[in-house]
Design a protein around this nucleic acid. Sequence first.
DNA 1: CCAGCAATAGTCAATAGGGACTAGCCGCGG
DNA 2: CCGCGGCTAGTCCCTATTGACTATTGCTGG
Lengths: 216, 216
Amino acid sequence: MRIVVCDDHRLLLEALGMALSATGHEVVALAGHPEEAVQAVAEHQPDVCLLDVNFPDGTSVAAIHQLREASPDTKVVMLSAEADHAVVGRAIAEGASGYVGKEKPITEIVEMLDRAVRGQLAVEPSLLQRALRPHKSSEDPLWALQFLTDREWQVMRCIMEGQTTEEMAGSLGVQRSTARTHVQNLLTKLGVHSRLQAAALMSAHGSQESWPVHLR
Amino acid sequence: MRIVVCDDHRLLLEALGMALSATGHEVVALAGHPEEAVQAVAEHQPDVCLLDVNFPDGTSVAAIHQLREASPDTKVVMLSAEADHAVVGRAIAEGASGYVGKEKPITEIVEMLDRAVRGQLAVEPSLLQRALRPHKSSEDPLWALQFLTDREWQVMRCIMEGQTTEEMAGSLGVQRSTARTHVQNLLTKLGVHSRLQAAALMSAHGSQESWPVHLR
DNA sequence: CCAGCAATAGTCAATAGGGACTAGCCGCGG
DNA sequence: CCGCGGCTAGTCCCTATTGACTATTGCTGG
């Protein structure tokens, strides 16, 4: 297997390189950032790219697209510190072939990479199950996040910063009544009854991955 | 150097073991949990213990104490994914000898371990500076967190969950007016003007480490 | 070109939240 | 035994927030 590895922790990156080489695979490039990974994948057309999901701003999920564009035959396997089923679903939806936790021994990671290269979905069954469940019950408040408009995401940011309606109006450059309307729509879409609950929702379940890529 | 390494990501743990061995040091034990680390340190009395700060509930910081009890001559170096100066300060205060980021190359990590063993403080100067600054300026809103009472921390939890005054009164088993008073005192102590700001403060700066140990 | 949606702005009524107080009760240290 | 601090509870007054609306503008896909 020819592999490109991408992780922002250099230590882990080097370690993965060593460990994968030790199992008889060819690590063709190490990338410290998704952009580097895209370049490396475009250049080397590897069998698989192991990509850390832990980049800020949801960059990682966005990178999947670019990687698949750069080399359609390269499978993308996400590497994550936590088993976050919301992210799993999103990653798979975006075109990733697998998702493996950092807490797994190296042997299992290799096995997952192997499965991905063979065209199988490399996700733990239990995790996959949880990732698919919410799609059926559209009652999940997080599902609603998808339907927020750009403006509403900006409003969400203001809410998370604890701004009042006035401050929000100021930073968005609109009348307070407009800010109010956006807040109102936001609350309605999320199915909550106060900005505090919206903030709680985001800080509890909303990892960086929940945020749209183009809005920081 | 005789080393014990502790991290909950087995991958990183194994990788660290390999990398440190490759640099000519003796890794006497790998631990997946602070408890294991304490045991291993007690048994092997190593020169240094490399400990991930990323354990939930502030377990890591608490573990420093136990490690130093188990083997007073063993230096403890924290390993972290983020450069969080609040945690640095806390870790050093609890008896750690160093703090190094996972994004550093392995060579630098080894160097830091070496410094720690030689009795020096192994922290990046820039990080150390930021870690020490807040102690002087008591204007830091986070400083105020220290002075919250247990009840107020419970109230804080309710706020973070987006509860209204009524709900809060219900879950605390008191009158709404009492809950109100607690909220009021909380806001005053933190120097903010709304619960939303209090929540923002916590979710922005308040890592798990900010939370008192005995309250989860 | 029209329908639909996002963004803008506004109104009215009702409720929740915040500021500034007072006050009783209880345990703990001096 | 007294005072202090924390937990409890309450009041008055004002502002902020919310719910439920309507309405205009501008862009976009069919």
